[in-house]
Simulated scan of single mutants.
Amino acid sequence: MDEPQDSQVRNLDARSLRGLAHPLRMQLLDALRFGGPATASQLAEKLGESSGATSYHLRQLAAHGFVADAPERGKGRERWWKAVHKGLTFDDSLLTDTDPTVRGAADVYLHEAAGSQIQNLSTWLGNRTAWPEEWNRVWDMSSDTLRLTPDQAQELISELHAVVDGYRDRAPEADTPDAEQVRIHTHLFPIETD
């Protein structure tokens, strides 16, 4: 995939991928990206981990440039962390890298990302009745099957990403009434047919 123009999106390379491809590190990064700055203790409680484990993995994420200190939030010795980038891109060539540890890290990353997306949807399905009626009328879980060439598939992916980017540019201010963060998942992959 091509790296988006947004400098807030980081393109994963072999080194950074190895630093991120761990289930807890990916959960920590997502928690900071979508929930805002937090301490290791707060993240430990949220994720059901020990603060020692979250502290260790936050330091590893920092060493690879994914998270940084948020000193404006801390008081005294309290250390707050924040995500450095709003998003990540993944280069498919990592799946065919000559180094087997890179290929393994790529597999871990993709499987963890897929699991996280499934968890996002499951959480919504379990909690949707707690949301206002307006949000219960506008969610989507659709599936379709098309017959495409690889070039057409790439064109469709690019067009879908352009639509999402267009809405990113139109995002309302944080204090806009009724505005919420929404999660958008797109999946396009070939399937075997009989």
Rank of each mutant, 00 (worst) to 15 (best):
Arg79Ala: 00
Leu24Cys: 06
Asp2Glu: 06
Arg59Cys: 11
Pro177Ala: 02
Glu3Tyr: 00
Ile191Trp: 04
Gly115Ile: 08
Gly52Leu: 07
His64Glu: 05
Leu43Ile: 15
Tyr56Lys: 07
Ala105Phe: 10
Gly36Met: 14
Glu45Cys: 01
Thr149His: 08
His22Cys: 11
Leu160Asn: 05
Gly166Thr: 08
Glu173Arg: 15
Gly126Asn: 06
Leu121Lys: 02
His187Tyr: 12
Arg33Lys: 14
Thr98Cys: 03
Asp144Val: 03
Glu180Gly: 02
Ala40Tyr: 03
Lys82Met: 05
Asp97Glu: 10
Ser122Arg: 06
Gly115Leu: 13
Asn11Thr: 00
Ala14Thr: 04
Ala21Ser: 08
Ile118Met: 12
Glu192Pro: 10
Asn136Phe: 06
Val182Glu: 04
Glu192Ser: 14
Gln27Cys: 05
Ser41Asn: 08
Thr39Asn: 01
Thr89Pro: 00
Arg170Val: 13
Val108Phe: 04
Trp139Lys: 05
Val84His: 06
Glu112Gly: 06
Arg79Ile: 07
Asp175Gln: 15
Ile157Glu: 15
Arg59Val: 11
Val164Gly: 04
Val108Leu: 15
Met141Thr: 01
Thr96Val: 08
Leu43His: 11
Met26Gln: 14
Ser116Met: 09
Val102Cys: 01
Glu112Val: 09
Leu188Trp: 06
Asp169Asn: 09
Arg10Tyr: 15
Glu155Lys: 02
Leu125Pro: 01
Asn136Cys: 02
Thr145Phe: 08
Asn127Tyr: 00
Gly65Met: 12
Glu72Met: 08
Leu29Tyr: 07
Leu160Glu: 13
His85Trp: 08
Thr101Ser: 08
Val84Gln: 09
Met141Phe: 11
Thr39Ile: 02
Ala31His: 14
Ala31Ser: 13
Thr39Lys: 02
Thr193Val: 15
Glu45Met: 03
His161Glu: 15
Pro71Asp: 14
Leu88Cys: 00
Trp81Gln: 04
Leu61Glu: 12
Gly87Gln: 00
Gly126Gln: 05
Ile184Arg: 04
Trp131Glu: 08
Leu148Thr: 00
Asn127Ala: 12
Arg183Tyr: 11
Arg137Met: 07
Thr176Tyr: 04
Gln42Pro: 09
Ala21Val: 04
Arg77Leu: 10
Trp135Pro: 00
Leu43Asp: 10
Ser51Trp: 02
Asp194Ile: 09
Asn11Trp: 11
Pro177Ile: 01
Arg10Glu: 15
Pro150Val: 01
Asp2Phe: 02
Glu78Ala: 07
Asp165Gly: 08
Thr96Glu: 06
Gln42Trp: 12
Glu155Val: 02
Ala113Val: 14
Thr145Val: 07
Gln8Phe: 08
Asp30Ser: 15
Arg128Lys: 09
Leu156Ala: 10
Leu188Lys: 10
Ser143Glu: 06
Pro4Ile: 02
Leu125Asn: 03
